[in-house]
């Protein structure tokens, strides 16, 4: 048997909390790789991200400046971390940091030789909530009709185009299903006060929510896709348990989106299966927190991403196990004050 190549990979999203980030599942997938021997550098924003303290998964961790500090500061910090650790690949997992990482991807490669597998800025922007209609048109997938509005009065003028119930969505977060104008205007104000304008008004599609975790190679090939239905949802709307589905049509739609958009990297597609077919609700530009289910079903997407980054040939997965469940659980790690002190005062652990 040949010796597995060793790789140092930096991974963010170590917030394995009740509304978890994808970092730890991605790391778990990489650590179980049959192909690579992976050393993990954790990248964190908070000192209480659980992944920081999971020493069997994360070999060494560093704090990053918040995305709002800007690109120059991020590059400075990555230069420092790279000097210590000689990172070969970075897998960012937070929505809010992706913009910056996409912007510096070329620089990371040319200045430090650090590789990434990320969507282009155009791909990243094309799937924003506010332009979902265009995304649907371009990729030939049904989306709930939606419109971006800036004032409550516009709600009145769109009543011709929409029927209640509607979904009122914030620019970044928050959504409410409303049954009439007075509810709609209530949520318009409530959500816009918190997240600002514009507000997205969306057709409410009834049906079952199904999600797909997928990965594209940027050339139009869908390397892997595993669909899942949530079986139990937390009060924050996150999956607590889910099951992998055998749904050829959903896989076909996913293949089509990945191929038409030439998506590069991991992603999560959120669909509603309704009586008249599948509607795409959202496309998240990174692996979901439940990506390990794909690994358990026989498709190690994070490993495939690592292979792509390092230039190994990657062939599309042909099959996956259906009827496999994931059931999330929480676990109280015990941590000495000293470890907390180290990450708090030195910024590394």
């Amino acid at each position: 048997m040949s010796i597995k190549p060793s790789v140092t990979v930096a991974v963010s999203g170590l917030n394995n909390i009740d509304s978890p980030g994808p970092g730890i599942p991605v790391i778990r997938a990489l650590k179980e790789s049959n192909f690579f021997n992976v050393r993990i550098i954790g990248l964190s924003y908070e000192t209480l991200e659980p992944g920081l303290y999971m020493r069997d998964l994360v070999d060494k961790s560093y704090q990053l400046p918040l995305p709002s500090a800007g690109i120059a500061v991020l590059l400075d910090r990555l230069h420092y971390i790279h000097q210590q650790e000689n990172i070969q690949v970075i897998i960012p997992n937070f929505d809010s940091e992706l913009y910056n990482f996409i912007k510096i991807a070329d620089q990371l490669k040319s200045e430090m030789g650090i590789l990434t597998v990320l969507p282009t800025l155009n791909q990243f922007e094309s799937r924003q909530k506010s332009v979902l209609n265009d995304f649907g048109k371009k990729n030939d997938v049904k989306v709930p009709f939606s419109k971006t509005i800036f004032s409550v009065n516009e709600l009145l003028t769109i009543e011709e185009e929409f029927n209640y119930p509607l979904v009122i969505k914030g620019k970044y977060y928050d959504a409410a299903v409303v049954a009439n104008f007075s509810q709609a205007s209530h949520y318009f104000h409530k959500i816009s006060n918190q997240w600002g304008l514009p507000i997205v008004v969306q057709e409410f599609v009834t049906g079952t929510e199904v999600n797909v975790t997928a990965i594209g190679d940027g050339e139009g090939n869908c390397i892997g896709a595993v669909p899942m239905r949530k079986l139990y949802i937390t009060d924050k709307g996150k999956a607590w348990a889910g099951v992998s589905l055998d749904d050829a049509q959903l896989i076909a739609i996913t293949n089509q989106i990945i191929s038409k958009s030439k998506w590069k990297g991991g992603c999560e597609l959120e669909f509603i299966r309704s009586n008249d077919g599948y509607y795409l609700l959202e496309m998240n530009p990174r692996f979901p927190a439940w990506v390990y289910l794909a690994v358990a079903c026989g498709q190690n997407h994070p490993e495939a991403l690592l292979k792509m980054a390092l230039g190994y040939p990657v062939k599309p997965f042909q099959r996956y196990d259906t009827g496999k469940l994931f059931i999330r659980y929480s676990y109280d790690q015990i941590v000495d004050m000293q470890q907390f002190e180290t990450i708090s005062t030195k910024g590394e652990l």
Binding site: M337, F340, E341, S344, T345, K346
Partner: peptide, 20 residues
Amino acid sequence: VAISDSGFIFNPLTGDSFTT
């Protein structure tokens, strides 16, 4: 109150920690 040379302070009464 526990105080370390690095300027890290832990208050076991309240559970808060600080740097100075």
